[in-house]
Design a protein around this nucleic acid. Structure first.
Lengths: 329, 329
DNA sequence: ATGAAAGCGCTAACAC
DNA sequence: GTGTTAGCGCTTTCAT
């Protein structure tokens, strides 16, 4: 079942079949009919590999995420597919499972099979990022800015987000806050942490506790966090906040009466948690769409694309309230 | 940068390069060295499309899920990649976004680009499934059994799962239970519902309320559910249970004191909910692994593969307790 | 407007 | 053990 089969059945050349299948306008209407009929009759479907080889492009892009289990990435992926789909591109998703050392290899593998790659929150060392940028012009970086590396990027203004959150907490009278720190190699985590440190200007006294990016991490980190007797806890992301909330409940700590807690990203679960989690909304779909736009431009040959920075938004819910007046937990 | 480039650089033929790249044993050690060196030097990476065309297979399989935002599918996907990866296969993920009418088209498109397809909880009409089975032998169906359609399948024993859950509820003294029904076209939903109906044998009197598969659906369905004044609510899945829990909280209904609630699947969030959700654990990763195994066999030419049925497991947590003695909500 | 034919980059007979 | 070569299925000049 190839072009030749269809061509024979329709009594035309393979070139004509190809033209019809690709919607070329320079084909006589009756030929179009004949070919269409023959193709439909035979149930013909073009072979993607052959098309890819002949055209020099696959029509597929790939996205590499560190953890597919994090709902955060779904919305990003949705944004990417939606935007890329409109340009006739399909999306291949890969998961590095939070293994920074595997990312470079995976990226090369993906680049081999697809036309371009979107790295979502990559954890790989700076050096690998540099290698990748040297190897290919079809890579864009989401959620990470790498100075002096020629990689189109789109990020969130973590500083602005954290600042508005800190403002919120400061107005509620909080002073001692613990930050549940995300993965070491996460750029977002570093940004959030630094932004929080700068919030000392509002009178917030922040201390970081090593944590991670999963619910289990959040759950496990609470005991250490409470040792600092904070009135508020800021989690690396909503997932962590979620796990933390569970542990606080176990320990009988009332949220937000005794301790306030806030997350980051605004994943769907955040709004349904008990209590609903105050968070900094990340324009995830937009991030996905912009990433594709950047990739499309890179694919079209544009170089030296400027990094884009997207604005987050504070979402106040029920997990934050006025700091308790005095006393320890 | 092609085989020829490398061949020229190494002073050998393209065939030898190909042999080395594919780990053929019938190559002299020094040639292997030369080729390896040249390839590394040039940073050569084989073109996947060309390989696919020449080999007649792409080395990629695809998985179609109805909703990538449902954490349930992550574990399934994890199982698939893990198993397929061991056989040198990569995985392409596609999301039909709960649009049953788009599934057939998407499936064909995926089949065109990859060697095989795993349909995860497909919602498409039976007729489309039949078409697909006729068109290809490289399709396996997870979470759906279609009688008289020659499609390798792996499912969960919903009946067993629902029965153990009903047992649990019956022993706690529940009689009036509401089932929050999932998507109309979901086979799992039908199975769960039927199994629940059969639980009348335990003295459970179940009534179904239309709901859906999202947190918002669960949230929205609670009001109608409470109209039936149930002592227990069984949700289509954990996501729905999660949304339902939020609404119950809003209405001031105490779970589990006034109403018990149970989910299905045991997604990670279930254990961290407030209260932790009693559920029926679905061996998701196993399901993924088995799906791949079936697909691999189909790809190898086996036909008439027997459907596999996996056992679920009741996980009792804090959202279910003894039925309230008397009185309405 | 249509067809013939030359590749796209790689693999796998087949010959040596 | 190594090289030659004929495709894999499609697109795309280039003629006509």
């Amino acid at each position: 079942m190839t072009v030749s089969t269809v061509a024979a059945a329709a009594g035309v050349s393979t070139a004509t079949v190809s033209r019809v299948m690709n919607g070329s306008t320079t084909v006589a209407p009756d030929m179009v009919q004949r070919v269409r009929a023959a193709a439909a009759e035979l149930g013909y479907r073009p072979n993607a590999a052959a098309q890819g080889l002949a055209r020099g492009r696959t029509g597929t892009l790939s996205v590499l995420v560190p953890d597919l289990a994090n709902p955060y990435f779904h919305d990003v992926l949705k944004g990417v597919t939606a935007a890329a789909g409109r340009s006739g591109y399909r999306m291949l998703v890969a998961d590095s499972e939070e293994d920074p050392d595997d990312e470079l290899g995976l990226s090369h593998e993906l680049l081999r099979q697809t036309d371009g790659l979107i790295l979502c929150s990559p954890r790989m060392p700076r050096h690998d990022l540099l290698t990748l940028a040297d190897d290919s012009h079809a890579v864009v970086c989401a959620n990470r800015l790498a100075a002096d590396i020629d990689l189109p990027a789109v990020t969130i203004d973590a500083h602005a987000g954290m600042t508005s959150l800190c403002h919120h907490l400061a107005r509620l009278g909080h002073r001692r806050v613990v930050y549940l720190s995300g993965p070491e190699r996460s750029w977002s985590n570093q940004e959030r942490r630094h932004a929080l440190d700068r919030a000392a200007a509002f009178g917030l006294d922040a201390v970081a506790v090593a944590c991670g990016a999963t619910m289990a991490d959040g759950h496990a980190a609470i005991d250490a966090a409470l040792d600092h007797d904070p009135t508020a806890i800021v989690a690396f992301n909503d997932i962590v906040a979620f796990g933390a909330l569970a542990r606080l409940r176990e320990r009988g700590v009332d949220v937000p009466a005794q301790v306030s807690i806030a997350g980051f990203d605004d994943i769907p679960f955040a709004a349904y948690a008990a209590p609903a989690i105050t968070t900094v909304r990340n324009p995830k779909e937009l991030l996905g769409r912009r990433s594709w736009l950047l990739l499309a431009r890179a694919l079209a040959g544009e170089r030296g694309l400027e990094p884009e920075v997207l604005p987050p938004q504070l979402i106040v819910r029920d997990s934050t309230a006025a700091a308790r007046d005095r006393g320890n937990l």
